[in-house]
Nucleic acid binder design. Sequence first.
DNA 1: AGCGCTATCTACCAAACGGTAGATAACCTA
DNA 2: TAGGTTATCTACCGTTTGGTAGATAGCGCT
Lengths: 191, 191
Amino acid sequence: MTPSPGRRRLPLAERREEILKAATELIAASGFKGVTLEAFAAACGMTKAGLLHHFRSREELLIAVLERRDTLDLTTVAGALEPAPDAATARAVMSGFVRRNLAQRSLVQLYTVLSAEALDPAHPAHAYFRKRLREGRAMLERYLLAWHPDPGAAAVDLLAFLDGLQLNWLRDDGIDFLAQWEAFADRFFAA
Amino acid sequence: MTPSPGRRRLPLAERREEILKAATELIAASGFKGVTLEAFAAACGMTKAGLLHHFRSREELLIAVLERRDTLDLTTVAGALEPAPDAATARAVMSGFVRRNLAQRSLVQLYTVLSAEALDPAHPAHAYFRKRLREGRAMLERYLLAWHPDPGAAAVDLLAFLDGLQLNWLRDDGIDFLAQWEAFADRFFAA
DNA sequence: AGCGCTATCTACCAAACGGTAGATAACCTA
DNA sequence: TAGGTTATCTACCGTTTGGTAGATAGCGCT
């Protein structure tokens, strides 16, 4: 476990980014409970103590991982709905969202594994996921408002299908995510 | 943590059942990784050593929990498809399944939490869930075979929706599971 | 070149973990 | 009521865990 070129010193921002990226991969694979401080550190060639210089505790690292993905991901989607969009543009936005997720399997897995783990009210990310779900649903509802007869139920419908499809896709990569989505969307956006 | 009436001795089968029931609740709440041997034991008023008299290891307890639920649950559904059923009976069977799940929230949560946790190939229940998913999908496909134009894709569709709806229902009990399901079924079984 | 800053390391700790060994006590039968 | 069976307990062990204290070394600045 000793790093090859002795000691590797990086500027703060750079090392932080490296740690967060590695942590994302690890949590996606084994959940938060499944990864130790030692493992997080080793994944970027340092020691526990070295890592704790950047994040004061294991839990703080988790929060940082989540917040990083939010700023990187959620903001991209939110911009496009200045006027409430019609069915066609709503579908286009959603399809873009799906395609982007498809390209980042480990990220999808991070959120899936972690959000299930965080159903436990004692989990450090419990509050985070509650908030995120509500905000996501509210945002989606605004997308559907202009043209769908029952935006509330439809939002639940769409999110449930996407979450479930992701889950099954992660379990069995024989599933053609894109095809299943497009077929669902054909029906969903026809109404 | 000392049990009130000194020592409580139970016949083997009875104690086993009590342990499994308590373990199911605990795992549903916090996942398998989230519960210690001590916690499993304390939940039925005994010590670690006492519990290990009935299950040789923590992992063996997990397997027992899963197998118990299978014999109790999966067999009930499987019986009804001697001839490949038509759309109406297929829907009736599925609706029964949904209603039964609705009445046992903690059981649903057990499977949801655990199956996400077990996406990790190193998880002790990983193989179990892979097998279970494949069998479940194959069974559902047989239900759809007689009347649906594309049973394979439809089976994925239905399971994805149900899994996702369960997940969101667990996250936010404001969701009306039954209503969402019936609306989805109206569309699904109309084809 | 030399100095200060700080990113990183080595060494350590207390607590919690899964599991084991051997003593103890509750029930069943004679 | 005595004795055997076994479910349960107390006490312990070795390992792993998250986290801390203090030493060390790489980098930027003058």
